[in-house]
Design a protein around this nucleic acid. Sequence first.
RNA 1: AGUCCCGUAGCUCAGCUGGUUAGAGCACUACACUGAUAAUGUAGGGGUCGGCAGUUCAAAUCUGCCCGGGACUACCA
Length: 1129
Amino acid sequence: MVHLLNPLLKIFYEYCAWIMNAYKEYKSLDLPLLENEVGKFWVEEKIFEKSISTREDNPPFVFYEGPPSANGMPGIHHVMGRAIKDLFCRYKTQRGFLVNRKSGWDTHGLPVELSVEKNLGITKEDIGKKISIEEYNAECRREVLKHQDAWEKITHKMGYWVDLKSPYITYENNYIETLWWALKQLFDKGLLYEGYTIQPYSPAAGTGLSTHELNQPGCYRLVKDTSVVAQFKMVKDERSDVVFSGIHKLNNAPVFFLAWTTTPWTLPSNTALTIGEGIEYTLVQTFNPYTALPINVILAKALIGKYFDSNFENKEMIFEVGKKELPWKILSTFKGKQLEGIRYEQLLSFQQPTDGDAFKVILGDFVTTEDGTGIVHTAPSFGADDFRMAKKYGLGSLTLVDKQGKFIDGVGEFSGMYIKNYKDDAKYESPDVLICIKLKKENKAFKVEKYEHNYPHCWRTDKPVIYYPLDSWFVKTTAAKKRMVELNNTINWKPESTGTGRFGNWLENLQDWNLSRSRFWGTPLPLWKSEDGEEVMCIGSINELKGQITISEENAKKFNLDYDVQLISENLKDLHRPFIDRIFLVSKSGKKLSRTPDLVDVWFDSGAMPYAQWHYPFENKELFDKNFPADFIAEGVDQTRGWFFTLHALATLLHDSVAYKNVVSNGLVLDKGGNKMSKRLGNSVDPFSTLDKYGADATRWYMISNSQPWDNLKFDIAGIDEVKRKFFGTLYNIYNFFALYANIDKFIYKEEEVLLKSRPEIDQWIISLLNSLVKTVQDDFDNYEPTHAARTIQEFVDEHLSNWYVRLCRRRFWKGEYSEDKIAAYQTLYTCLLTISKLIAPISPFFADKLFSDLNLVSRKERFESVHLSEWPEVVNNAINQSLEQRMQVAQDISSLVLSLRKRVNIKVRQPLNKMIIPVLNEKFKKQVEAVKDLILSEVNVKEIEFITETEGVIKKKAKANFKLLGQKLGKKMKAAADAITIFNEAQIAELETNKRIFVVIDNEKVEILSEEVEIVSEDIPGWQVANKNELTVALDITITPELQEEGNARELVNKLQKMRKDSGFNITDRVILTVEKHDLINSTIINFKNYICAEILADDLQMIGQLSDAEVVEVNDFPVKVILKQKK
RNA sequence: AGUCCCGUAGCUCAGCUGGUUAGAGCACUACACUGAUAAUGUAGGGGUCGGCAGUUCAAAUCUGCCCGGGACUACCA
């Protein structure tokens, strides 16, 4: 790897490699360096482009890129999201699909505007005054792609394959033109309409506020407002008979609804009272505390305690102003439902609504009995809930406050008063207070008090916000609600719950889509309206607009307008404001139409990307047809009601189709403590430095394997390190091991494939596992379950390939002739590595490609220059051998048991032992073990396996209930039966085995138990050290005979001498001469194992001498041996 | 407030349609391996499976309620 730093040296080495036909060997694993190199290779050889061009005629797999805003810097969560997108696109490419990946940039919207305002030190009010809209928008255009280079850098660095050369950009004219086309489609279908909506509005700033702005820190503040419980007088008629009939004849006092408000200024605009359908209300006889007039009031039963003292209940009905003892008495109770539709007299009748019914009781689901009276004062103009209710019941509204925040004319003494002190008037009197005084005097206020609560404030002016109806254009999504639900049911959501739950519920409660934004930098609404509001024209293309301009030119003189058509046309090169605002059109009836100044919600921009990215339908019609709908999209779960929704809504409305067939909504990336990352907290992870340090592959692998994409990821750098060590380190070691010996033996895969059945058992086994692996991984990717795929691959590499196959086969690679067995070993390992390179390619594209190339450049087995152009491995079903996999599992289990037994009695593996004993309960099991006997014996350094059967009489059997089978059969008796079975004696077990059934008495009832309902295991061999795992039992003969001791000593000595060789820096092939000082405890070992020792340490001579000076001392099983090891020249 | 997700060992996560010793990796401790070695393996300790009820012969798993973390949406008269 080091040599790659120098290009000349690199060429030289590659030349050498070519001449020598050798696999590259590495000194260390440096992922970032490797990725850098592979990344360059991709660029130079245009691998990404080729991955598309070579599949030109294949079926497409359509992917949509959700456009990021280049206005902000990429964060680590983008790496996460893009890793998911990338891996499925790469996988489908490997599966042979044509996967086009057009990138895109989201360029409009508030964040851009805010950052421009911050940069220029201006506020929204300055736009059009201190700075022209033209200059402002030019600034936005510059600002928005500020970080584009950073985005491109991270894209390359993380190995995200997306076509950056021809991105769609939402501010471009072509893009906007498609949006207009879409809007016109909706307009023509009658799905675009103008209406009121209640929005947070700052009278002081004279602007509506987005919820985004309202969520700025510090906007909600604790304030003290005058609150009032007002009395709304009930009208006595048929509807209210239910109430009046409950009043005793002697009581002639009027009946009032009590409703509480913290915004008394909205009371003149009241048009309804809302109650809860299921809430219980009471009619209470009492007095007005301020006037002492006898009254009857209605309020929620649950809230009586808030206004009445239980001490005065049912007291004599006498009261004077100023007294505290307010007597009260419950006359009757009702369910909310019974009160529905009852009318009341207007509280403050300055004006009457003209747009609908008013002053009646309605039902609303939002009413609670947590505070207030359980009856909600409803002013449709000043509350979103109120507005919704008004629409539902066809209620009229009153908007007696203007946009400056003052009462309009015709509100009596309040006319012209500001509802809050917006002008910082020192002598300001609050109409809230004045209204309350008035109500008190008129016997219409039941309780007035200061109330402290949280109320939103404008973050620019620090003044209270009000909710105010504003003109807006809507998309009538509710018209297609049913269809949207139906289509949604055909979408494959990952996870499913997001689709059915979060998204599904959202669709069920769908509201019309408010498109209007009163901003500057965004797609202008292509709507021109006459002054009287009666005629509206929607423009669907630039050509159409040009045509209309020509017509309007002729009319310009009529309207007395200075109209420079040439200038206007030139300015059409930019469809943004302010140019577009200067255009006026003429309606068919000859009215002047001017543009509605609103912009389109940016979510419309991105939701229309399937069409707009191709400038459809003005161009690329065929291309669009082939690329709609998408097979796959992926974004964060926070986009559920954002992009996922707008895509779906537009596709449904425009094409009666889904926009995407499969969608992965991934979770958030949190810090390692599970907190949201934020710059403020300083816990955000910089993606650049992370990728620089750990590499993209390790980062991607970590992200994908650590948690399911839709679970939040607790991002911990240490986890990446672990992945690097554990997974890539292991894989790298395996490759290096392979390369080392393959180069020595000049294995370049030229020989004929050794038939699978001619290969040793262990080769067949790993190939079997490998094919099972391919199958699993393929299924996982097909089902959009990348985490399981990654974990399965990881387990295969770690547990099976490295820790079992390579470890057990090491000797096959470095011992002996270049025989068929050796070739089989090479071929097997090669196949595993190459296949793995393909399986991991979607997740870790760099390392995979390097592995692929390193193997393939020598073998030339594949005709592809990159793994990403290669074909997905085919599952060879008849290579999968379940019983082989099973018996290898048995071998692993037995080895593990023997090792644990050795551990228990503290005998190291280097000490050979004579035998182990395995009880066999059936012939099949015995055959299984015998097939893998040699592997086990060499692995655990034991000389023999002895099988014992019950005929020898040493096995102690135990019975255990099969809960699943017996539980279903016995039900309540299960527990007793299980206990009975556990204490079966040998005779009972024997009976069960011979007769295949046994009867036991449980709860005084005879119960038949069949042999298949019981598991029989041998858990113990009396007198032996045994270990169990499931049904498996192993006993170990731990007797160390003098012969075994000597052999153990010999091995120990060899081990120490090998270490000496290595420490002395001898080459692997150097010959040596060994001299050992005589010692009673070691002499016989050396004599008996002389040949073995010499062979292992490559000694040509071994001498034993009485006294040895200048000797080194090595500890051999706790006694010191003096030796001299000399290199033979 | 509503909708959805998550809560299993100190940490990160597996545990399928309920079935009896609740698993892995990291970390920790001990030991081993030493011709894949700036690697690796084995063993051990460590868990009232967020809490409480319920269904069931049997609940980490199913149901309800509650608590905690998160996301989105809507906001309080």
